[in-house]
Design a protein around this nucleic acid. Structure first.
Lengths: 203, 203
DNA sequence: AAACTGAATAATCAATATAATATTCAATAT
DNA sequence: ATATTGAATATTATATTGATTATTCAGTTT
């Protein structure tokens, strides 16, 4: 039987499996985690895991997807803080992006490596995550347009462009390039430049 | 004896070794190229290579550095075409950056892999290349300031920020994310946004 | 002395065997 | 019928060893 997407109890078990797998992957890494160990942690046989995930790779992919989703969630909360202007939201977005990448790279290297591996193999997941982040940026732009702070013609397209400019602060590969302080300064300068490009001109 | 930097004939031989090595690396890759083969190509013994490079890795690093330098040279020529406005130069820079990365990734995969490996091991080389590219961007900004097209306060700092925003178009790792046409559109949108941020405002 | 080489040594790679693990499946329990 | 398992099989990782290659160095040539 195929894996069902809509079954609630099945989903709950999938989630428990992912919890166990993530914990193992975080501590020991992908290669040194066995299906048998995950199964034991969740209280079932290794064979039964295959009712919930096609294979170990798929399990890891779901795990990675979940981790990337956590990033989106954190950013969502960061920009939705009350009282922020649109440019304040954008600053919060970039600050949050950098901070998350930095922390992840340095504090969760095993998970991070997993995510990098999956990202290089599963473009569909990467595009899904790009889409999530871009939607957040679009939200900021739309708000800026509405408040009169920004003047953005094509919100979606500009959100995509904006996201593209933030690659350096997003991808763990680059985290070793600079010290955190240097990175933060650079991020500030980038944001300042971008905001200037978005702002409404008073002719 | 240590490797001398200033000796002309020695430099010429170093250069010939690099030519031979680059050709081998390009065709067969780093691992499947032996020091003996490079030595034969250049007409000397393998032992003698060690008078010019400390080891194979250093030779590869010099080779990678040279390849990255070629990129800078191409971009330099692209932006120094006569008749370009500052924003035209910036567009040429970004177009050139993307095109070079794209071509390299698809047409010189072996060399590309070598460069990626060296880049991950030798940050000093990466920073040197960032410096080269940033200098070109600074040149564009200074020109824009002078022509009245741009209004940039701190040219160096803004050049660094600009360079940071172009990471997606620079790093081969990302070239598989989009089709070339999609990438070009994205690059255009990014440049348009950046130019808006740089332009002099008429209050 | 500086550039170079052949031969010796050290480090790395490739092939093979072995062990561990992923995955499947027939059978059992819920 | 669905969820589960133990055991069988297929795949992948690990360890071992022989072969290749990188590196050194004493000695030769320029």
């Amino acid at each position: 039987m195929n894996i069902r997407e809509t079954d609630r109890p099945t989903e709950a078990i999938r989630s428990r499996i992912l919890d166990a797998a993530e914990e193992r992957f975080r501590t020991y890494g992908y290669n040194k985690t066995t299906m048998a160990e995950i199964a034991t942690d969740v209280g079932m046989s290794a064979a039964n895991l295959y009712r919930y995930f096609n294979n170990k790779q798929d399990l890891a992919a779901a795990c990675a997807s979940r981790c990337m989703g956590a990033r989106s969630q954190i950013l969502r909360e960061a920009i939705r803080q009350p009282g922020l202007s649109a440019s304040g939201q954008l600053r919060a977005f970039v600050r949050g992006t950098l901070q998350y990448s930095w922390d992840n790279t340095n504090k969760q290297p095993k998970i991070n490596e997993l995510v990098a591996t999956i990202a290089s193999q599963r473009q569909d997941i990467v595009h899904e995550k790009i889409q999530e982040q871009t939607a957040l940026l679009a939200e900021i732009l739309a708000y800026g347009n509405q408040s009169g702070e920004f003047e953005v013609d094509d919100v979606i397209r500009t959100a995509r462009a904006l996201y593209a400019t933030l690659t350096l602060f997003e991808v763990p590969l680059f985290m070793s390039l600079y010290e955190l302080e240097e990175f933060e300064r650079l991020a500030q300068d980038v944001v300042a430049l971008l905001i200037k490009g978005l702002e409404k001109r008073t002719h």
